[in-house]
Protein backbone atom coordinates (compact mmCIF):
# COMPACT_ATOMS: atom_id res chain seq x y z
CA UNK A 1 0.00 0.00 0.00
CA UNK A 2 1.19 3.50 -0.75
CA UNK A 3 1.76 5.84 2.12
CA UNK A 4 2.52 9.51 1.96
CA UNK A 5 4.48 10.23 5.09
CA UNK A 6 8.18 10.77 5.60
CA UNK A 7 9.95 11.04 8.92
CA UNK A 8 11.49 14.24 10.25
CA UNK A 9 14.96 13.43 8.89
CA UNK A 10 13.65 12.87 5.36
CA UNK A 11 11.67 16.09 5.59
CA UNK A 12 14.75 18.03 6.70
CA UNK A 13 16.73 16.34 3.95
CA UNK A 14 14.15 17.33 1.31
CA UNK A 15 14.20 20.93 2.56
CA UNK A 16 18.00 21.17 2.50
CA UNK A 17 18.21 19.65 -0.97
CA UNK A 18 15.64 22.17 -2.15
CA UNK A 19 17.76 25.00 -0.73
CA UNK A 20 21.02 23.73 -2.27
CA UNK A 21 19.33 23.38 -5.68
CA UNK A 22 18.00 26.93 -5.35
CA UNK A 23 21.55 28.15 -4.78
CA UNK A 24 22.84 26.50 -7.93
CA UNK A 25 19.89 27.79 -9.93
CA UNK A 26 20.02 31.36 -8.60
CA UNK A 27 23.73 32.12 -8.31
CA UNK A 28 26.45 32.23 -10.92
CA UNK A 29 29.42 31.20 -8.82
CA UNK A 30 28.53 29.47 -5.57
CA UNK A 31 30.94 27.73 -3.23
CA UNK A 32 30.36 25.40 -0.28
CA UNK A 33 32.38 26.03 2.86
CA UNK A 34 33.85 22.87 4.28
CA UNK A 35 35.53 22.62 7.66
CA UNK A 36 35.68 18.86 8.01
CA UNK A 37 33.19 19.08 10.86
CA UNK A 38 30.07 16.92 10.97
CA UNK A 39 27.76 19.72 9.80
CA UNK A 40 29.74 20.40 6.65
CA UNK A 41 30.07 16.66 6.03
CA UNK A 42 26.29 16.28 6.16
CA UNK A 43 25.77 19.39 4.01
CA UNK A 44 28.11 18.03 1.36
CA UNK A 45 26.38 14.64 1.49
CA UNK A 46 23.08 16.43 0.83
CA UNK A 47 24.62 18.30 -2.10
CA UNK A 48 25.71 15.04 -3.66
CA UNK A 49 22.21 13.64 -3.30
CA UNK A 50 20.69 16.83 -4.74
CA UNK A 51 22.48 16.55 -8.08
CA UNK A 52 22.95 12.83 -8.53
CA UNK A 53 24.09 11.51 -11.03
CA UNK A 54 25.76 14.83 -11.75
CA UNK A 55 28.88 15.67 -9.75
CA UNK A 56 28.39 18.47 -7.26
CA UNK A 57 28.38 21.58 -9.50
CA UNK A 58 30.43 23.84 -7.21
CA UNK A 59 33.76 23.66 -5.38
CA UNK A 60 34.36 23.13 -1.68
CA UNK A 61 36.40 25.71 0.18
CA UNK A 62 38.22 25.23 3.47
CA UNK A 63 39.44 28.22 5.46
CA UNK A 64 42.42 26.66 7.13
CA UNK A 65 43.62 28.23 10.38
CA UNK A 66 46.67 25.97 10.41
CA UNK A 67 45.55 24.79 13.83
CA UNK A 68 43.87 21.63 12.68
CA UNK A 69 43.52 18.11 13.80
CA UNK A 70 45.55 16.10 11.28
CA UNK A 71 42.68 13.66 10.83
CA UNK A 72 40.46 16.46 9.54
CA UNK A 73 42.83 17.36 6.73
CA UNK A 74 43.20 13.76 5.63
CA UNK A 75 39.45 13.18 5.68
CA UNK A 76 38.91 16.40 3.68
CA UNK A 77 41.42 15.52 0.98
CA UNK A 78 40.20 11.93 0.66
CA UNK A 79 36.58 13.03 0.36
CA UNK A 80 37.32 15.59 -2.36
CA UNK A 81 39.28 13.05 -4.32
CA UNK A 82 36.80 10.22 -3.93
CA UNK A 83 33.88 12.37 -5.08
CA UNK A 84 35.74 14.23 -7.80
CA UNK A 85 35.00 17.60 -6.21
CA UNK A 86 37.24 20.61 -6.60
CA UNK A 87 38.73 21.69 -3.28
CA UNK A 88 40.01 25.18 -2.56
CA UNK A 89 42.07 25.74 0.59
CA UNK A 90 42.78 29.24 1.86
CA UNK A 91 45.17 29.78 4.73
CA UNK A 92 44.77 32.19 7.62
CA UNK A 93 48.57 32.14 7.81
CA UNK A 94 48.68 33.87 4.40
CA UNK A 95 46.40 36.65 5.66
CA UNK A 96 48.71 37.08 8.65
CA UNK A 97 51.82 37.14 6.45
CA UNK A 98 50.24 39.74 4.21
CA UNK A 99 49.40 41.87 7.21
CA UNK A 100 45.66 41.52 6.57
CA UNK A 101 45.12 39.87 9.94
CA UNK A 102 46.90 40.15 13.26
CA UNK A 103 47.48 37.13 15.43
CA UNK A 104 45.86 37.24 18.86
CA UNK A 105 48.11 37.20 21.88
CA UNK A 106 47.93 35.39 25.17
CA UNK A 107 46.95 32.00 26.44
CA UNK A 108 43.52 31.93 24.87
CA UNK A 109 44.78 33.18 21.51
CA UNK A 110 42.76 31.74 18.67
CA UNK A 111 42.68 32.14 14.93
CA UNK A 112 38.99 31.54 14.84
CA UNK A 113 38.08 35.20 14.45
CA UNK A 114 40.83 35.72 11.87
CA UNK A 115 39.11 33.24 9.57
CA UNK A 116 36.65 36.02 8.71
CA UNK A 117 39.38 38.05 7.00
CA UNK A 118 40.61 35.10 4.97
CA UNK A 119 37.07 34.09 4.06
CA UNK A 120 36.02 37.55 2.88
CA UNK A 121 39.24 37.98 0.92
CA UNK A 122 38.72 34.62 -0.77
CA UNK A 123 35.12 35.42 -1.68
CA UNK A 124 36.22 38.69 -3.23
CA UNK A 125 39.27 37.31 -4.97
CA UNK A 126 37.48 34.33 -6.49
CA UNK A 127 34.30 36.30 -7.17
CA UNK A 128 31.99 33.89 -5.39
CA UNK A 129 28.48 35.28 -5.17
CA UNK A 130 27.22 32.76 -2.65
CA UNK A 131 28.91 30.78 0.09
CA UNK A 132 26.98 27.90 1.63
CA UNK A 133 27.74 27.15 5.24
CA UNK A 134 26.77 24.45 7.69
CA UNK A 135 25.46 26.84 10.34
CA UNK A 136 22.42 25.66 12.27
CA UNK A 137 19.91 27.87 14.03
CA UNK A 138 19.91 25.77 17.17
CA UNK A 139 23.62 26.37 17.79
CA UNK A 140 23.41 29.78 19.31
CA UNK A 141 20.94 32.59 20.00
CA UNK A 142 22.10 34.96 17.25
CA UNK A 143 21.86 32.16 14.71
CA UNK A 144 18.21 31.58 15.66
CA UNK A 145 17.23 34.60 13.57
CA UNK A 146 19.43 33.86 10.61
CA UNK A 147 17.72 33.33 7.26
CA UNK A 148 18.34 30.45 4.88
CA UNK A 149 19.41 33.06 2.32
CA UNK A 150 21.37 35.63 4.26
CA UNK A 151 22.29 38.81 2.48
CA UNK A 152 25.76 40.34 2.99
CA UNK A 153 26.63 43.87 1.97
CA UNK A 154 29.72 44.82 0.00
CA UNK A 155 31.74 44.65 3.22
CA UNK A 156 30.57 41.12 3.81
CA UNK A 157 28.62 42.19 6.86
CA UNK A 158 25.36 40.89 8.24
CA UNK A 159 22.75 43.39 9.39
CA UNK A 160 20.41 41.54 11.74
CA UNK A 161 17.95 44.43 11.83
CA UNK A 162 17.68 44.69 8.09
CA UNK A 163 17.18 41.10 7.02
CA UNK A 164 14.93 40.31 4.13
CA UNK A 165 11.70 38.60 5.05
CA UNK A 166 11.75 34.95 4.02
CA UNK A 167 8.35 33.46 3.31
CA UNK A 168 7.14 30.02 2.28
CA UNK A 169 9.81 28.37 0.12
CA UNK A 170 10.46 31.53 -1.84
CA UNK A 171 14.13 32.35 -1.41
CA UNK A 172 15.28 35.60 -2.94
CA UNK A 173 18.93 35.79 -3.96
CA UNK A 174 18.72 39.13 -5.81
CA UNK A 175 21.68 41.39 -5.08
CA UNK A 176 23.80 44.26 -6.29
CA UNK A 177 27.33 44.06 -7.62
CA UNK A 178 29.87 43.30 -4.92
CA UNK A 179 27.32 41.90 -2.50
CA UNK A 180 27.04 38.24 -1.76
CA UNK A 181 24.91 35.72 0.05
CA UNK A 182 25.54 33.21 2.76
CA UNK A 183 23.18 30.31 2.53
CA UNK A 184 22.59 27.82 5.33
CA UNK A 185 20.94 24.69 3.93
CA UNK A 186 20.80 22.86 7.26
CA UNK A 187 19.42 25.81 9.24
CA UNK A 188 16.59 23.73 10.68
CA UNK A 189 18.68 20.77 11.85
CA UNK A 190 19.68 20.19 15.45
CA UNK A 191 22.77 18.37 16.67
CA UNK A 192 20.58 15.33 17.27
CA UNK A 193 19.14 15.46 13.74
CA UNK A 194 22.63 15.58 12.29
CA UNK A 195 23.75 12.49 14.19
CA UNK A 196 20.57 10.56 13.50
CA UNK A 197 20.92 11.37 9.83
CA UNK A 198 24.56 10.27 9.77
CA UNK A 199 23.39 6.98 11.27
CA UNK A 200 20.44 6.60 8.89
CA UNK A 201 22.59 7.30 5.85
CA UNK A 202 25.61 5.49 7.22
CA UNK A 203 27.97 8.38 6.41
CA UNK A 204 31.64 7.77 7.05
CA UNK A 205 32.95 10.13 9.72
CA UNK A 206 36.42 11.28 10.77
CA UNK A 207 37.76 9.15 13.61
CA UNK A 208 37.95 12.22 15.87
CA UNK A 209 34.25 11.97 16.56
CA UNK A 210 34.70 8.55 18.12
CA UNK A 211 36.48 7.78 21.35
CA UNK A 212 40.26 7.79 21.21
CA UNK A 213 43.15 8.34 23.59
CA UNK A 214 44.51 11.86 23.43
CA UNK A 215 46.69 14.16 25.43
CA UNK A 216 44.38 16.78 26.88
CA UNK A 217 44.21 19.40 29.60
CA UNK A 218 41.39 21.06 31.48
CA UNK A 219 40.80 24.83 31.13
CA UNK A 220 37.87 26.67 32.72
CA UNK A 221 35.96 23.44 33.07
CA UNK A 222 36.39 22.38 29.44
CA UNK A 223 38.76 19.74 28.10
CA UNK A 224 41.08 20.90 25.34
CA UNK A 225 43.44 18.96 23.10
CA UNK A 226 47.18 19.45 23.50
CA UNK A 227 49.00 20.69 20.40
CA UNK A 228 52.37 22.35 19.77
CA UNK A 229 50.78 25.80 19.53
CA UNK A 230 48.70 25.43 22.71
CA UNK A 231 50.25 27.01 25.79
CA UNK A 232 49.44 25.58 29.19
CA UNK A 233 49.00 27.71 32.28
CA UNK A 234 51.09 26.73 35.32
CA UNK A 235 48.14 25.05 37.03
CA UNK A 236 47.13 23.05 33.96
CA UNK A 237 48.61 19.68 33.29
CA UNK A 238 48.52 17.47 30.26
CA UNK A 239 47.12 13.96 30.67
CA UNK A 240 45.97 11.16 28.44
CA UNK A 241 42.22 10.51 28.52
CA UNK A 242 39.55 8.78 26.47
CA UNK A 243 37.93 11.61 24.56
CA UNK A 244 35.98 12.44 21.45
CA UNK A 245 35.15 15.69 19.67
CA UNK A 246 31.61 16.99 19.71
CA UNK A 247 32.46 19.67 17.18
CA UNK A 248 35.54 19.97 15.09
CA UNK A 249 37.00 23.37 14.48
CA UNK A 250 40.22 25.14 15.17
CA UNK A 251 42.02 23.20 17.94
CA UNK A 252 42.54 26.33 20.01
CA UNK A 253 38.85 26.72 20.65
CA UNK A 254 37.38 23.25 20.24
CA UNK A 255 36.73 21.42 23.43
CA UNK A 256 36.76 17.65 23.57
CA UNK A 257 34.46 15.52 25.69
CA UNK A 258 35.47 12.66 27.90
CA UNK A 259 33.71 9.79 26.23
CA UNK A 260 33.92 6.12 25.46
CA UNK A 261 31.44 6.27 22.59
CA UNK A 262 32.83 4.40 19.62
CA UNK A 263 29.71 3.84 17.50
CA UNK A 264 27.15 6.24 16.03
CA UNK A 265 24.50 4.68 18.25
CA UNK A 266 26.54 5.42 21.34
CA UNK A 267 27.14 8.98 20.20
CA UNK A 268 23.40 9.45 19.77
CA UNK A 269 22.79 8.08 23.24
CA UNK A 270 25.37 10.48 24.55
CA UNK A 271 23.88 13.47 22.75
CA UNK A 272 20.42 12.54 24.01
CA UNK A 273 21.66 12.37 27.58
CA UNK A 274 23.90 15.40 27.35
CA UNK A 275 23.19 18.42 29.47
CA UNK A 276 25.64 20.79 27.79
CA UNK A 277 25.14 22.17 24.29
CA UNK A 278 27.84 21.31 21.81
CA UNK A 279 28.95 24.93 21.60
CA UNK A 280 29.31 24.83 25.38
CA UNK A 281 32.76 23.43 24.70
CA UNK A 282 33.71 26.25 22.40
CA UNK A 283 35.75 28.96 24.03
CA UNK A 284 34.97 31.49 21.28
CA UNK A 285 31.30 31.83 22.27
CA UNK A 286 32.01 32.35 25.94
CA UNK A 287 33.77 35.63 25.40
CA UNK A 288 30.59 37.64 25.85
CA UNK A 289 26.87 37.14 25.84
CA UNK A 290 26.66 38.60 22.34
CA UNK A 291 29.89 37.05 21.07
CA UNK A 292 28.38 35.21 18.12
CA UNK A 293 26.28 38.16 17.04
CA UNK A 294 29.35 40.41 16.94
CA UNK A 295 31.34 37.91 14.89
CA UNK A 296 28.45 37.38 12.49
CA UNK A 297 27.99 41.11 11.90
CA UNK A 298 31.60 41.25 10.78
CA UNK A 299 31.13 38.46 8.31
CA UNK A 300 31.88 35.29 10.25
CA UNK A 301 30.42 32.03 8.98
Amino acid sequence: MEHYKINHLRELEAESIFVIREVVAQFEKPVMLFSGGKDSIVMFHLARKAFHPLKVPFPLMHIDTGHNFEETIKYRDDLAEKTGTRLIVKYVQDSINEGRAVEEKGLNASRNVLQTVTLLDAIEEMKFDCAMGGGRRDEEKARAKERFFSHRDEFGQWDPKNQRPELWNLFCGAKHMGEHFRVFPISNWTEMDVWQYILMENIEMPSLYFTHKREVFCRDGAWMACAPFMQLKPNEKAEVRDVRCRTIGDITCTGVTLSKADTLEEIIQEVAASRVTERGGRADDKRSEAAMEDRKREGYF
Binding site: K5, N7, H8, A272
Partner: peptide
Protein backbone atom coordinates in the same frame (compact mmCIF):
# COMPACT_ATOMS: atom_id res chain seq x y z
CA UNK B 1 15.13 4.82 20.66
CA UNK B 2 12.06 5.75 18.69
CA UNK B 3 14.08 8.65 17.36
CA UNK B 4 14.08 7.80 13.69
CA UNK B 5 10.32 7.66 13.35
CA UNK B 6 9.46 11.12 14.46
CA UNK B 7 7.24 13.53 12.56
CA UNK B 8 8.03 17.18 12.03
Amino acid sequence: NGYLDMEL
